[in-house]
């Protein structure tokens, strides 16, 4: 066990966990922030996507000991970001979700994409969202919601 200081959604947090514990499980079980989801544990489904210093990252494969002092933003905090709010609204407006389990990760990936590239093409969308699996296959509306959000970012 070791003690770690974290910056999550702009707040200081301290946790005592085994150094191998992935950030995903620190968020979910230590900080009770369950919006970030476990889907595969090997970074192939994207359900656990968070931003580390603004970069979309799979939190299931980041051991807490390797996190350093990078700023963490999760689905619970992305709404305080102007792009995050626009993306969440576009998602609600388009009625994107079905079971909804992967959508935290989808939204976090979409926010990272739109922050880097406010006018993404279909190819850009497929590249940036390409690792986020949705078993309900809500992909048509995910794509439309990103395009709608993009319009509001103009």
């Amino acid at each position: 066990m070791a003690t770690y200081q974290l910056n999550v959604n702009g707040q200081r947090k301290q946790v005592d966990v085994d150094p191998s514990t992935p950030l995903l499980w620190v968020l979910r079980e230590e900080l009770k922030m369950t919006g970030t989801k476990y889907g595969c544990g090997i970074s192939v489904c994207g359900a656990c996507t968070v931003h580390l210093d603004g970069v979309a990252t799979r939190s299931c494969v980041v051991p807490i000991s390797l996190l350093g002092n990078r700023r963490i933003v999760t689905i619970e905090g992305i709404g305080s970001d102007p792009v995050g709010r626009i993306v969440q609204e576009a998602w609600v407006e388009k009625d994107v979700v079905q079971c909804g389990y992967c959508q935290s990760g989808q939204i976090m990936s979409a926010c990272a994409l739109l922050k880097a590239n406010p006018k993404p093409t279909d190819d850009n969308i497929e590249e940036s969202m390409g690792g986020n699996l949705c078993r309900c296959a809500a992909y048509v509306r995910i794509r439309q919601a990103i395009k709608d959000a993009s319009k509001h970012l103009a």
């Binding site: 979910r28 009770k32 922030m33 369950t34 919006g35 970030t36 989801k37 476990y38 999760t74 689905i75 619970e76 709404g79 969440q88 998602w91 609600v92 407006e93 009625d95 994107v96 979700v97 909804g100 389990y101 959508q103 935290s104 939204i107």
Partner: peptide, 21 residues
């Protein structure tokens, strides 16, 4: 009509079985 569970599934507040605490 938009889903009643739509917003909570977009802001991380919606609880699934695995989130039970």
């Amino acid at each position: 009509v938009r889903r009643l569970d739509g917003r909570a599934k977009c802001d991380g507040s919606h609880k699934f079985a695995i989130d039970l605490d």
